[in-house]
C-alpha cells in the first residue's frame, strides 16, 4: 500500500500563482446534486456492505428513494429560482430507472458527471478490466441519455482503486471531485493525460453536515453562508471555488428546502460571484491557468 496518494504536489496557499475567474469574480460557485439510485438488494462487495441490516434495510433505502420521488423537484425549483444550474453527480442507472429526472435536468441545461452506475456498487476490489468496463458503461450511458461527454467524476459512493485517477485521465475525463485538499482546482499527477481536481467540499456536503455531524437545517444554512463569506473575502486576492454537494433526499425535505433557498438567494445576491458548473470551472482553468500552475509546480520540484 502507498503511504500517500502520490496524486499531487505540496502547494501552500500562501505561495502559488494567482487564479482569476471571468468578470473578476472572487468565487466560482457551483452546486452538485448527487442524483442517486440505491438498490434494495445489491450484491456484496468485499470492500463494503451496502446496508447495515440484512436486506431489505427499509429506512435508509426508502429515505434515499424520497429524494427521487419528492425531494428532487423541490431542490430543482429552488435552484432554478436563483439561476443556479446543477452539476449532477449521477448514478447512471438512473437514466434507465428515472429518465423523467434526467429530462428535467437536461431542460435546465444542467451538467451531468459520473457517480458510477449505482450508489450500491462500489469500486473497491475491482480489477483494472472491471473498472474499465464500469467507466465505459458510465461514459456511454451519459452520452446516450443526455448527449453530454462526461467531463467530471466523483467515484460511486467515493469508492476507489489506486488505478482510478490514471484510468480517468486515459478516458479523457477532465476533472475529479474526489480530492479534498484545496479550495482551488489543482493539477493531478497522471501520466496518460491531464486531469485536475475541482473542489467539491465534504465540509459543505449535506450528508456530512446533516447526517454525520447531525446539524440542524438552520445551522447548515449558517455554515454555508460563513464558508461563502470567508472565500469571498479571500477571493479578492485569488479566485476561490465553493461547491455545495447535495442529496435531494436530505435538502429536499420540507423542513430544509426553505432554508436552503435562502442560502442560494444570499450567495447569488453577491456581485463578484461566478455561478457556474464543474465543467465550466475546469474549462476555464485549463484555458487560463493549468500550464502556468504546472510550470510553477515543476519549477518548485527542481528547487
Amino acid at each position: 500500500m502507498l503511504r500517500e496518494p502520490e496524486l499531487y504536489d505540496y502547494s501552500p496557499m500562501a505561495d502559488r500563482p494567482k487564479i482569476t475567474w471571468p468578470n473578476d469574480a472572487r468565487v466560482a460557485f457551483w452546486v452538485a446534486p448527487n442524483i442517486e439510485f440505491y438498490e434494495l438488494d445489491p450484491p456484496l462487495n468485499p470492500g463494503r456492505r451496502a446496508w447495515t441490516k440484512p436486506h431489505p434495510d427499509v429506512v435508509p433505502y426508502s429515505h434515499r428513494d424520497y429524494g427521487n420521488r419528492a425531494g428532487f423537484w423541490r431542490m430543482l425549483e429552488a435552484m432554478a429560482k436563483y439561476g443556479v444550474r446543477g452539476s449532477v453527480s449521477l448514478n447512471v442507472a438512473l437514466c434507465q430507472h428515472h429518465p423523467e429526472i434526467i429530462a428535467a435536468c437536461n431542460e435546465l441545461d444542467w451538467e451531468f458527471f459520473s457517480h458510477g452506475v449505482y450508489n450500491t456498487r462500489y469500486t473497491y476490489t475491482m480489477s483494472e478490466a472491471q473498472e474499465r468496463a464500469m467507466m465505459e458503461d458510465v461514459i456511454a450511458t451519459i452520452k446516450d441519455s443526455t448527449g453530454q461527454d462526461v467531463a467530471g467524476w466523483l467515484a460511486p459512493a467515493l469508492s476507489y482503486t489506486t488505478n482510478t485517477m490514471e484510468l480517468l485521465a486515459e478516458y479523457g475525463v477532465k476533472y475529479t471531485c474526489d480530492l479534498f485538499h484545496d479550495d482551488q482546482p489543482q493539477p493531478v499527477n497522471t501520466k496518460s493525460g491531464p486531469l485536475i481536481s475541482v473542489p467539491y467540499s465534504l465540509e459543505m456536503n449535506d450528508t456530512v453536515v446533516l447526517s454525520m455531524m447531525g446539524k440542524s437545517s438552520r445551522h447548515y444554512s449558517d455554515i454555508l453562508k460563513a464558508n461563502f463569506d470567508q472565500l469571498y473575502e479571500e477571493g479578492a486576492e485569488s479566485g476561490q471555488v465553493m461547491c455545495i454537494p447535495l442529496h435531494p433526499f436530505l435538502i429536499g425535505q420540507p423542513h430544509r428546502i426553505g432554508n436552503f433557498a435562502e442560502v442560494l438567494e444570499y450567495i447569488t445576491g453577491h456581485d463578484k460571484v461566478w455561478v457556474t458548473t464543474g465543467r465550466e470551472i475546469a474549462e476555464h482553468y485549463y484555458e487560463h491557468h493549468y500550464d502556468n500552475v504546472v510550470a510553477s509546480l515543476a519549477a518548485k520540484r527542481k528547487g
Partner: peptide, 12 residues
C-alpha cells in the same frame, strides 16, 4: 458484480 438485472424503468 457488473451485471445489473433490475436496471430498467421504475423501481428495482
Amino acid at each position: 458484480y457488473l451485471k445489473y438485472s433490475k436496471r430498467g424503468h421504475g423501481m428495482d
